[in-house]
């Protein structure tokens, strides 16, 4: 089982090649004049980038994606953070409910969630079908473990009982304790959750495509449409979505300082 150093280096080089070649190729493709007859691009140009950015749909879909990503992150922060605090301080035994809900959230693929929501809400007189709101709610359902996990970890790492007692002995009620004492202490956890949710929703395709389709075009939807008729401009869009994911990861790294990876905070769902 012991691998010598040469073998380990080869493994890592191959891994790097496999992970980086698609990204580098996509980037080069987006700035090359012609690249279907030769090994290296025949020349370089910014034409495709200019073209794609100048389109009206570009700004609109980017705006839509930022809107839905921010809305989901904010809504989940408001829903999950107070609940997580409440559970930790008043009913720690029911933490298990969150664990089970998280498992459900992982276990239900986007396609099936979309099908269930469409079947159920088209049968009852609630005006949700085909609206942005149903997309927002579905994204929240899909992403809440990404919010809960970092917040719960942050709550576990501070002494919430002592903090709460101290605040209450000084006359603070539940709400003021939560806002003025607990929130500032778990802020890094909230920020991490916020960013994880943001990047997940920003790349979300399945729910958007099936729940709202062409009525509310997000960036990934626009990208898929583009791959069918203009590869150059599509590759520029692909690079933009990768850069967004990369920037969010960098921010996450900055917040958490040292990234500690456990299998708990892995994100799944493609």
């Amino acid at each position: 089982m012991r691998m010598n150093k040469l073998f380990r280096s080869i493994v890592l080089v191959l891994f790097l090649l496999f992970m980086l070649v698609p990204l580098i190729a996509t980037f080069l493709f987006s700035i090359s004049t012609r690249w279907d007859r030769t090994i290296l691009p025949e020349g370089f140009t910014l034409e495709w980038w200019k073209k794609v950015i100048s389109r009206g749909a570009f700004g609109l879909t980017l705006k839509n994606s930022f809107y839905i990503s921010f809305a989901t992150s904010i809504a989940l922060t408001i829903l999950v953070t107070p609940t997580a605090y409440w559970v930790h301080i008043r009913a720690p035994k029911s933490k298990v409910i969150f664990e089970i809900m998280s498992a459900f959230s992982f276990g239900i693929p986007g396609v099936i969630l979309a099908l269930a929501l469409i079947r159920f809400y088209s049968g009852i007189p609630v005006p949700l079908i085909n609206t942005t709101n149903i997309l927002l709610l579905a994204c929240m359902e899909l992403c809440f473990p990404f919010m809960y996990r970092p917040v719960a970890n942050a709550l576990d790492s501070i002494d919430i009982h002592t903090l709460t007692e101290a605040s209450q002995s000084l006359g603070g009620n539940w709400i003021s304790t939560f806002i003025h004492v607990i929130l500032p202490n778990i802020f890094p956890g909230i920020a991490s959750g916020f960013l994880l949710v943001f990047s997940t929703v920003f790349a979300e395709f399945t729910l958007t495509n099936l729940l709202v389709g062409a009525r509310f075009k997000t960036f990934p939807i626009y990208l898929v449409e583009f791959t069918r008729f203009d590869g150059r401009q599509a590759s520029a869009l692909a690079i933009i979505s990768f850069v967004v994911a990369w920037v969010v990861s960098l921010l996450l790294l900055l917040i958490s300082g040292k990234r500690t990876i456990t299998s708990d905070n892995l994100t799944i769902g493609h």
């Binding site: 698609p22 990208l223 590869g231 599509a234 869009l237 979505s241 790294l253 990234r259 994100t267």
Partner: peptide
Amino acid sequence: KNALISLSDVTTNFSGAPLAFSFIII
């Protein structure tokens, strides 16, 4: 080590349309 872990972190979320498209290009 950290750079490779960060790379894994980003690329595991690089999926869907952008990924499919990158593979069409290569």
